[in-house]
Design a binder for these strands. Structure first.
Length: 476
RNA sequence: GACCCUAUGGUCUAGCGGUUAGGACACAUCCCUUUCACGGAUGUAGCCCGGGUUCGAUUCCCGGUAGGGUCGCCA
């Protein structure tokens, strides 16, 4: 029987990076085994539910290209533009318009085990509570319904951790029973979670280790219903760099923050794979297909891992460098637009030529406007520290001579510019650097950037000379 | 407090009853490039502590310590 695995987030308007990795591991296991990946929305907390909150989850998964076989159908109205989804990865999520009824998310779903929103499954839960009640396995208590928990230790057979014998804590020793139906009539998480897994024929539960202790309750519930519990795999948690628990308000805890910073989803996915899982052959950079092929539960590590932003950034650089041109342009244009720069005002060939000089030289797309903004605006500040160093009186006559040399040029391509600059330096009896640095600052305002000769070629003779002229005036 | 999980350089990890304990990120130095980035080379740095088993433990067992998790009418 093919595995049926699920990711069951609750819509809080926020998708934790750890939750994203849980989704990823579930997805990987389903794809590796040829099983079914199910997305179930645990929206029992009506107060927090909204279409937007559900969209955060759906869009987050779509961004990471984690497609699901059963669950809500994603609409085209998604706030995430499709161009941000890797072209190299087939997205199986069918597109359709979502229907929204009131405040509750009622997206059309696919799959034969629906509904996939817990808010629509109350009848099922009611029936299951009655079942336990009538069989004497649960009882009413102060308006709520409590489940008669066994007092003996429960053995959890975990695919990652191994056999765990969960004994009662001293509190549970006093009263091991727990509430399954609140006095307001709402069933609690432990109960709905088990009932849904049971009704949806879930075979593997892959979730964070924070659920390990509570698994005893879940197993007891399955047994009460006379059903064999699914296989459990508890994966280690993601910690802050300082080793503390990564909670909602910590930097980098939200998946959305990586999208906002201009990370590539393939870099995020690759990095997340490496956190708590290893291919064990010293390889780090792995394509999605390679991970799907190698991924399996026994290779999952047992200890928590700290989030290493620098390593993610390294992977980001790796993937950014080898982006296909079309996608690179799209992401770059998007980054400029986000920074308030409309590159559409410039000829497409100019934009592409400008971007070509930047490819592979920056990592995050959010860095791009600062890195290459000089291509798209003539007004910019000179880097103060660098200006102090290179906009000095003795450089003025040198820069004037270079301006004259450039002005005399017929061709204005990188090779010609390089020759002219080096020849000018030779005549001046100075190192090329004495001309390169002030010219770079004049043209871009920054001490760092694309290759000087190539950037001047893209800028063109007129703009290049104008900027040198302007710098000359600034030197005074 | 009780119960559970975990422990290899700063970080992510490979590994094994006998290894010069391997790789990656980061860091340092050098080369390339008169920017930055990339690439190349070199280097600093590690088996939590204490017992036990064993001819021999980083590896197996026990204890300690540390970190994390769970004990809700939150999910």
């Amino acid at each position: 029987m093919k595995p049926r695995v699920r990711f069951a987030p609750s819509p809080t308007g926020y998708l934790h990076i750890g939750g994203a990795r849980t989704a990823l591991f579930n997805w990987l296991y389903a794809r590796h085994t040829g099983g079914t990946f199910i997305l179930r929305i645990e929206d029992t907390d009506a107060a927090r539910n909204s279409q937007e909150a559900v969209d955060v989850i759906l869009n987050g998964l779509r961004w990471l290209c984690l497609d699901w076989d059963e669950g809500p159908i994603v609409g085209q109205a998604s706030s995430l533009s499709s161009e941000r989804v890797s072209a190299s990865i087939e997205v199986k999520v069918p597109l359709a318009s979502p229907t929204v009824t009131g405040k509750m998310p009622v997206l059309p779903c696919k799959g034969n085990f629906g509904p996939y929103f817990q808010s629509q499954r109350s009848e099922i839960y009611k029936r299951r509570v009655q079942e336990l009640l009538s069989r004497g396995l649960a009882y009413e208590h102060e308006g709520a319904v409590k489940f008669k928990m066994q007092r003996e230790p429960v053995t959890i057979h975990d695919l990652v951790v191994g056999d765990v014998v969960r004994k009662l804590t001293d509190r549970e020793e006093l009263d091991p029973d727990f509430v399954i139906l609140r006095s307001d009539g709402q069933p609690v998480f432990h109960f709905v979670n088990v009932v849904d897994d049971l009704e949806m024929d879930i075979t593997h539960v892959i979730r964070g280790e924070d659920h390990l202790s509570n698994t005893a309750k879940h197993i007891a519930l399955f047994q009460a219903f006379g059903v064999k519990p699914p296989h459990y795999a508890h994966i280690p948690l993601i910690l802050n760099p300082d080793g503390s628990k990564m909670s909602k308000r910590d930097i980098g805890a939200s998946l959305t923050s990586y999208l906002d910073e201009g990370f590539l989803p393939e870099a995020v996915v690759n990095y997340l794979c490496l956190l708590g899982w290893s291919p064990k052959d010293n390889r780090e950079k792995l394509s999605r297909a390679e991970v799907v092929e190698r991924f399996d539960l026994p290779q999952i590590l047992r200890h928590n891992a700290r989030f290493d932003y620098e390593k993610l950034l390294w992977l980001q650089g790796e993937y950014a460098r080898e982006l296909a041109d079309d996608r690179f342009y799209e992401l770059a244009v998007h980054a400029f637009a986000k920074a308030g720069m409309d590159t559409n005002r410039f000829p497409l060939t100019y934009v592409k030529a400008a971007l070509d000089t930047c490819k592979g030289k920056f990592k995050l797309f959010n860095e791009l406007p600062a890195y290459a903004g000089f291509y798209f605006r003539d007004e910019f500040e000179y880097n103060a520290d660098d200006a102090k160093k290179v906009f000095i009186p003795e450089n003025k006559p040198r820069l004037e001579k270079l301006r004259d040399a450039f002005a005399a040029l017929n061709a204005f391509d990188a090779a010609t510019l390089e020759t002219a600059l080096k020849e000018t330096a030779r005549q001046l009896g100075v190192k090329a650097g004495a001309l390169i640095h002030p010219t770079r600052l004049a043209a871009t305002g920054n001490p760092h950037g694309p290759s000087l000769y190539h950037l001047l070629e893209v800028l063109g003779k007129e703009k290049s000379l104008a900027r040198i002229e302007k710098a000359l005036a600034a030197i005074g």
